[in-house]
Structures are given as structure tokens and as C-alpha cells.
């Protein structure tokens, strides 16, 4: 006969132990973030291959669904678009004039050269967010491909975000529309600095927040915002988006408004990582 000598512990105590463990783990992982890296790497290298495989199925599924829904919409849209074309062609003429102006400014800032000058690595987005609260994603290139923490990520010609964690074969990117994201930007035309903050509340409107613009500057809708020279982690001169609805704060000292990013975050599949880290430590040493 088999004797049962199972020790039973009240789940209450197990819960308490786990909660204390959570606290300890939290403190440890915060304090010794570098030493936790290998542990994360192991977990990640287990999961990311699976995600990579499944992700293609997901995106295909999404494409099919998109196709169905868009079919219905196309008819309505077609009508609307025709009206819009007339409007746009008029607007286009105006914009063309702006473009000449813009090109002049770009030359002024040597933007073109800088863009081309940054070394880039292409990467595929292999998994999206884990819940509805965050806007972080994982790409399939890691330290093996020369990706490091704090490298800037672009798609098309706009800023997507920053690498917040680089592991051996994958890296985690926080997009600029994440609620945790804060970037120093410059309004190109006026060379005014501002702070660009991701905001979950505004996400459904497709915009993010711009704050801290000097109060006396008059900025029109559609002004370009690029990453600033004074930013600690972002390389200067990467296009972020266009501002709109700039209003004075109640304090009258600063202005606040919205920014619509150039990148379409709903359908990111390929991104470019600029394999150059803005090294503020180097800068500080030079200044010493």
C-alpha cells in the first residue's frame, strides 16, 4: 500500500510568499538590471522563434480580414474620394509652394546628409504589444546584428521609437506613442524646442502630445517637428511628425498642442534601426 505523506500548505501562505518574492524580484531586477539580462535572454530566445513563426500567420489573417472590410467600404470611399480630389488639387498647389520653402530649410539644417549618413539595419517586427496599455514591440535583430540599447528606430522617413532592451537575437522597441515615451523635439521652422509625450488617451485620435513650446512663438498647423540636438538619446534631425492645434497654456509661458506622427503605427512590419548611439557620456567628457 502506498502511504500518502503529502504536506499541505494553506494557499494563503503561498500567496504571501509569492507576493514577498515579487517585491524582492522587483527590487533586484531594478537594482541589477544588467545582471538580469542573461535570464531575460534565455526566456526570450525560447519564445521569439515561436512568435516569429506565428506572426506571419497573424499578419496574413489580418490582411484577409482587412480585405473583407475594405471591400464594403470602398464604394462609399470612392464617392468621398472624388470630392476630395478636387479639394486636394487646390491644396496641392499651395503645398508645393511650401515644399520649396521646406527644401531650403532642410538644406539649412543639412538634414538630407545626416539622414543618409546614419548607418541602418533593417529589422522585422515579430510581435506586438502584450496588452492594450502599451505600445512596445519586438524586432528580430539583436546584439548579434549590432543592435544596442538606446538606438533609434525609424520606418520610412519618420521616427518610430527607441530600443529599450537588446538581447542576443531580438530587441525590444518602445514606440513614440507609448504612454511612457518622452522626446525632445525641435519645431524645424522656428527652431523652437518642445517635449513630445506619448499619451494613451489621445491614441485613438492618432495624435500625441506636444508641450513646452515657448509662449510667444506663433506656430502654424502642419509645422514639421524633428528630434532635437539637445536630446540625450535621439540623434538629431529625424522627422517625428507635424504639429497642430497649438494653444497657449493657462500659465501663458508655454504652449501645448498635438502632433500627428508621420509613421503609421497600426501596420508596422519593417523598421530600420540606426546603428549609431548618441553618446552623451562622450559629450560630457569633451566638455570637462
Amino acid at each position: 500500500m502506498r502511504k500518502k505523506t503529502k504536506i499541505t500548505i494553506d494557499p494563503k501562505y503561498v500567496l504571501v510568499v509569492i507576493l514577498i518574492l515579487c517585491l524582492v524580484l522587483g527590487v533586484v531586477s531594478y537594482r541589477f538590471a544588467d545582471k538580469m539580462q542573461p535570464v531575460r535572454s534565455v526566456a526570450g530566445s525560447l519564445i521569439t522563434p515561436m512568435q516569429k513563426g506565428i506572426n506571419s500567420i497573424g499578419s496574413n489573417l489580418a490582411k484577409q480580414l482587412d480585405y473583407l472590410t475594405t471591400m464594403r467600404k470602398t464604394v462609399d470611399e470612392n464617392k468621398k474620394l472624388k470630392e476630395e480630389i478636387a479639394e486636394l488639387s487646390a491644396e496641392n498647389k499651395l503645398l508645393q509652394q511650401d515644399k520649396y520653402e521646406l527644401e531650403n530649410f532642410r538644406k539649412l539644417y543639412d538634414l538630407d546628409e545626416q539622414y543618409a549618413g546614419y548607418p541602418k539595419v533593417a529589422a522585422r517586427v515579430i510581435s506586438g504589444d502584450r496588452n492594450n496599455w502599451n505600445k512596445e514591440f519586438v524586432i528580430d535583430k539583436g546584439t548579434e546584428d549590432g543592435i544596442r540599447k538606446n538606438m533609434n528606430v525609424m520606418a520610412g522617413d519618420g521616427l518610430v521609437g527607441i530600443v529599450i532592451e537588446a538581447n542576443k537575437s531580438y530587441a525590444k522597441v518602445r514606440s513614440i506613442i507609448d504612454d511612457n515615451s518622452n522626446i525632445y523635439g525641435t519645431v524645424l521652422k522656428h527652431s523652437e524646442n518642445c517635449i513630445i509625450t506619448g499619451n494613451l488617451k489621445l491614441m485613438s485620435d492618432g495624435v500625441i502630445e506636444v508641450t513646452g513650446i515657448k509662449g510667444d512663438v506663433k506656430i502654424e498647423d502642419g509645422a514639421e517637428v524633428v528630434t532635437s540636438q539637445i536630446s540625450e538619446k535621439y540623434l538629431p534631425g529625424i522627422l517625428i511628425g507635424y504639429v497642430r492645434d497649438i494653444k497657449k497654456d493657462s500659465s501663458n509661458i508655454t504652449q501645448t498642442g498635438y502632433l500627428s506622427p508621420v509613421v503609421d503605427f497600426s501596420s508596422l512590419s519593417m523598421v530600420f534601426v540606426i546603428t549609431k548611439v548618441k553618446d552623451s557620456a562622450e559629450l560630457e567628457e569633451m566638455l570637462k
Binding site: I54, N55, G58, A62, S127
Partner: peptide, 12 residues
Amino acid sequence: CFVLQTSVFTHI
């Protein structure tokens, strides 16, 4: 479920 949530449901 983890893989499904992070790679499929983000698309749909």
C-alpha cells in the same frame, strides 16, 4: 496563449 496573444491577436 502567450504566443497567440503577442503575435496573432495584435493583428486582429
